[in-house]
Design a protein around this nucleic acid. Structure first.
Lengths: 333, 333
DNA sequence: CTGAAAGCGCTTACAG
DNA sequence: CTGAAAGCGCTTACAG
């Protein structure tokens, strides 16, 4: 590959001038700029990024950490991040943590070695010590999206999980449901706690506290299916189930089908996330939709601002939408 | 961050020795190795990767290009790649091309600038010129997984698409089906052509050529749904439909449901890929399963061998499995 | 086995 | 506005 020297020779100037023509064209005369441009085309020059990064002590790479890449919930968020990152000349490295602390640690270690300029966390399920260490320097290039830590204050882009859950439960109650159960994500997860708070408070406001019932899943199909079976086979069967993910809701749908319980006639089910699949399951799923693309975009913008030393709104709350489809209906009782 | 100089000072040796203790410990005495190790721990040293990359003219980064990150089919493949890559000290950069030639070009340009050491293609839907240019040097660090080009010979890890389709059609025919339609992926796609060949040849072998019917989808839910409607509303309705993806099969399921056509009583449906969802749709989907994790692993191993200058088996064919679930049954006619 | 030294390809403070 | 020169943090051929 030709280097900046070759360009300088072809343009009849110094390497410093070539570098400037590239990095800060305004510091160079129009004529020079053009000669350099022609020389670059002539020799087929492309800058060596490793050299540039070494010199500038940056990597132009952003890492995003997520708990499970196979969850389609994340893909649209990643697309949003990528869009903004590429526009700004950054690359996105997608890191799948898979609940493995070692993996998370490996990705965090990219920060001090200048292999990554910043991290966007899409999971709170990583060692807090890791985050604390990274956060200790002021203006640490860390942003949280969708999730948050109960005990570490990070710039965050998310929805109002409390409100979103409250809204879903209100809707179910307005349909006449009085026994509304919930399949939560991991109960240690702060956003699940928020949703469960919204769930409980809304039931209480409706005088339905007595029937509150929360079981724990892991966001995946299987856990929804299993908890759905447990809930529906037991005595005092709920007439509606609010799930913290679409996958779990679809698992519940399968459980109901297997038990011969009609949805929505005998059971209403609400999911969370509005993944593509939710329109194609049977029946089509009523669900809480988050603006995933926008969350990704905003999180990346926030991180880029941090990197630029700009001050940022530390908490951005985007709005959700309850999408009513076919899995919910009036209570039969 | 401390540099190699700080370590050298702390260990009482030269930077060259520190470097060697790290890169080729066998070139250094045991005592030196230990002093260096202690010094590294003492000063908290971590190598600057940009500097190392610049010096070594490599990036230790592999790019994988895929057509659509939101397709869950790819996640398990990516996991397989990541696993092998990390073990070998490489990073995986996941590039979503979204049918945009400019994106593909941007990722390919990482190669000559040493920002990436190799590329694994999970899509054939990119400008061939790009691939040709990259392939022109001998032992180009390019590997194809799942897909292939009709006109460019690249080291490949894939299944036998012809056989897999033939197997599925054989199974359907053995169930008594005589009108078997197919919802193909993009017809320009070589793997779809292979599957369609397998489909046609098998029908012919059974004397069923007359009823062959192939419509085109794009692998997504919606196209399966639309083509399903078209196929099922028309005259001479098929009694079985073979789809080139699970998402399309699930779309067909929805179309059948909407038209009141029972599956599998009145219609059998076979998908392709065995995505997680295929177990949770109604009815559970019979599908062709590919060893996705293994495909990812093998593709990465192949690329790493190429990078090491080793010779590789240029065509690795992994086996598929027909997973029979509830969406297929004996023909009613 | 070890060290001095050159050099990977850039960028930038300094001088003019 | 432009150039000479130093230096980012490593690695490695060369000598000893």
């Amino acid at each position: 590959m030709p280097t900046i020297k070759d360009v300088a020779k072809a343009a009849g100037c110094s390497t410093a001038t070539v570098s400037r023509a590239l990095a800060s064209p305004e510091k160079v005369t129009e004529a020079t700029r053009q000669r350099v441009a022609r020389a670059i085309a002539e020799v087929g020059y492309a800058p060596n990024v490793a050299a540039r990064n070494l010199r500038r002590a940056e990597s132009r790479t952003i890492v995003t950490l997520l708990p499970d890449i196979s969850n389609p919930f994340f893909s649209e968020i990643i697309n949003g991040m990528e869009e903004v990152a590429h526009q700004a000349g950054y690359q996105l490295l997608v890191g799948d943590c898979e609940r493995d602390p070692a993996r998370a640690e490996a990705y965090f270690s990219l920060l001090p070695t200048n292999q990554a300029d910043g991290i966007i966390l899409l999971t709170s399920d990583i060692p807090h010590a890791l985050v604390r260490r990274a956060v200790s320097r002021a203006n640490a290039p860390l942003v949280m999206a969708c999730e948050f830590f109960a005990d570490i204050d990070l710039p965050t882009v998310a929805i109002d999980n409390y409100q979103a859950a409250a809204h879903a439960i209100d809707y179910l109650a307005s349909l006449g449901h009085e026994r509304i159960a919930s399949v939560s994500g991991p109960v240690g997860n702060p956003i699940c706690r928020e949703r469960t708070r919204g769930y409980r408070d809304t039931l209480a406001a409706r005088g339905l506290s007595g029937s509150a019932r929360v079981v724990e899943g892991d966001f995946g199909f299987r856990s929804g299916y299993q908890q759905g079976l447990a809930l529906l086979e037991g005595t005092d069967r709920p007439s509606a189930i609010f799930c913290h993910s679409d996958e779990m809701a679809i698992g519940v749908l399968k459980a109901a089908r297997q038990l011969g319980i009609g949805v929505p006639e005998a059971l209403s089910v609400v999911g969370f996330d509005n993944i593509g699949f939710s329109e194609y399951c049977e029946p089509e799923l009523t669900t809480v939709s988050q603006p995933r693309h926008e969350i990704g975009q905003q999180a990346m913008r926030m991180l880029l601002s941090l990197l630029a030393g700009e001050s940022v709104v530390r908490r951005q709350t985007l709005s959700t939408q309850l999408i009513v489809r076919k899995s919910t209906g009036r209570s039969a009782t």
